[in-house]
Write a protein that binds this DNA or RNA. Structure first.
Lengths: 193, 193
DNA sequence: CAGAAAGCGTGACAAATGTCAACGCCATTT
DNA sequence: AAATGGCGTTGACATTTGTCACGCTTTCTG
């Protein structure tokens, strides 16, 4: 399981075998059952978590009790609540597994230490954050400029893997539209093929 | 003008006088006229830019020719296209001054060099990016979960300074609603006071 | 295996929001 | 002072999207 992570990480930065061994030694592998939550609203997110298999979502409840999906995570992605992690404050979000999953985990303490010891890992972390920021920008642009149908098509095209592995009503909550609207858009679209 | 920046930066990290002098020596102060563009679609964003006075917006045209405001920048904020800066690729955005403004500018080359020389500046830059990411998350949540009226109220409350210094139709394009809808929401709201 | 729950689709209707056109106000220009 | 153009407002109407209700199918779960 760690091998997949090694391969992933080395696509981003150069890491020596010794360094990789340090990273491995500090990690813990864990299986997560379907529907299991790994972050509950009110808790502080104190780990760094890499998904080797399976699927997660980060979501939040609004005042009226409906839930809104901020982000999905699938194979070879990371899942976290950065705000809670950075400021060590209670999270307003929840993270749950949408399928039986495997993750690699580092405690915040160890991960921060590894970043100090291994410059390449720090660099990687910076690249990851930068990419996350860019992705957010693109999503914001999509949300303010696209119709429901356009958002649907773009999501399907940009994240086909995610699209095919999560329930439709969660995609709807990710796009900020109702599940019925999404269902109808999809019908129109498949009929046109 | 640089004094204001000094004060701002020292609220975030500790910088010695010598270090600050290095930062100052590498900087250029510039006045920007109202409506002047400092980034045009297709150009690469190669500077780091701090706003001392005035107001800017980052926007983009969609296929139908309408423009969408990604972000505003006012006093003591930064304005940039991170994606273009990071990857040195042609920007899809424009940045224009909404009022006569003053900025402090560093070339990418010098800014990157300063970050290497001054650890505190690198740390500051990381904090800034982290905060930007968190802000994006919150905006995404707002966009997928709030009605037009809620988005309006939240924006007004969170960024009163911005709200009061930019044209209404740009606020509308920032919130992803039409200017007419924004105008009506505002009317309803002021009548209730 | 049976019952329950979740997921998805769909019709009818309601509500929110967008579009188009016209108008007035105000700042700036001529 | 008149003309202009940008900005915001407003009415009428169209379109999009949401809500509610229901039913069918699949997937859990005891």
């Amino acid at each position: 399981m760690f091998e997949a992570f090694e391969k992933y990480l080395r696509q981003w930065v150069e890491i020596s075998d010794e360094e990789m061994e340090l990273i491995r030694a500090a990690s813990v592998e864990r299986k997560i059952r379907k529907w299991q939550s790994i972050l509950h609203e009110g808790e502080v997110w104190k780990i760094t978590c890499f998904i080797t298999t399976g699927c997660f979502r980060l979501y939040r409840f609004s005042a009226d009790g409906t839930d809104h999906t901020l982000r999905f995570g699938v194979e070879n992605w990371w899942i976290s609540d950065q705000e809670s992690y950075n400021h060590e404050k209670p999270s307003e979000y929840n993270i749950e597994a949408l399928a039986a999953s495997s993750v690699i985990i580092w405690t915040k303490e160890k991960w921060e230490e590894l970043k100090e010891i291994i410059p390449a890992l720090k660099l990687f972390n910076e690249k990851l954050l930068a990419r996350g920021y860019e992705t957010s920008q693109q999503r914001i642009y999509s949300l303010i400029s696209n119709s429901a149908e356009e958002k649907y098509l773009e999501f399907q095209k940009t994240y086909p893997k995610v699209f095919n592995s999560v329930p439709l009503h969660m995609v709807a909550s990710y796009l900020g539209i109702s599940r019925e609207t999404l269902s109808r858009i999809r019908k129109d679209f498949t009929r046109r093929d």
